Amino acid sequence: MAFLTVAEVASVMRVSKMTVYRLVHSGHLPAIRVGRSFRVPEQALHQYLYGSYTGSIESTDRP
């Protein structure tokens, strides 16, 4: 299983690192804590992106 840093996730998603931190802290994007940093399982990122694309992830930010 491969894990990505917050910076790597932000690069793949083309968002800021703060956006990734918000997704992790809100529980929308699963992550594990390694020391003082977070690592996101690569498979979890792909599932999140697929769910976002197909609209299957519920978001409170959307009308």
Rank of each mutant, 00 (worst) to 15 (best):
V15Y: 11
M1S: 13
Q47S: 10
Q47M: 08
H28K: 13
I57Q: 05
Q47Y: 14
P63E: 00
P63I: 00
T5L: 04
A44F: 10
V12R: 14
T54N: 12
E8G: 10
H46C: 00
I57Y: 10
Q47W: 14
S37G: 11
I32C: 11
D61I: 01
V24Q: 09
M13T: 00
V24M: 09
M18Y: 15
I57N: 03
H28W: 11
E42C: 03
T5I: 05
R62V: 01
A7L: 10
L29Y: 07
S26G: 05
R33A: 08
P41K: 06
M13E: 03
Y50W: 11
I32G: 15
E42Q: 12
T54C: 07
V6F: 14
Q43S: 10
K17C: 11
I57R: 09
Y21V: 01
S11L: 14
G51K: 05
S37T: 11
G27A: 07
T19W: 09
V40G: 04
E42R: 13
V12I: 13
R22C: 02
R33F: 09
S11N: 15
K17N: 14
S52Y: 15
E58W: 09
T5Y: 03
F3L: 07
F3D: 01
V6K: 13
V24W: 11
T5S: 15
A10Y: 14
S59W: 01
Q47R: 15
T5W: 01
T60H: 03
R22I: 02
T19V: 00
R33N: 09
E42I: 01
P30N: 08
M18P: 06
V40W: 02
Y53M: 03
S56R: 13
V40T: 04
D61F: 10
S37W: 09
M1R: 15
H25F: 11
G35H: 13
S52A: 10
R62Y: 06
A10I: 01
V20M: 10
M18T: 12
P41R: 06
I57S: 02
S52P: 01
V24H: 10
G55S: 01
R62N: 04
T60R: 05
S16H: 12
P30A: 06
M13S: 02
S11I: 00
E42Y: 12
T5N: 06
M18W: 12
R36N: 13
S56K: 12
T19S: 10
R39L: 04
A44H: 11
A2Y: 15
S59P: 05
I32D: 09
Y53Q: 05
G55H: 04
R22L: 03
E58G: 06
Y21E: 04
M1L: 07
F38Y: 15
G55N: 01
A10R: 10
Y50K: 13
V15Q: 12
R62L: 04
M18R: 14
V34K: 13
H46D: 03
T5E: 04
Y53I: 05
V15G: 06
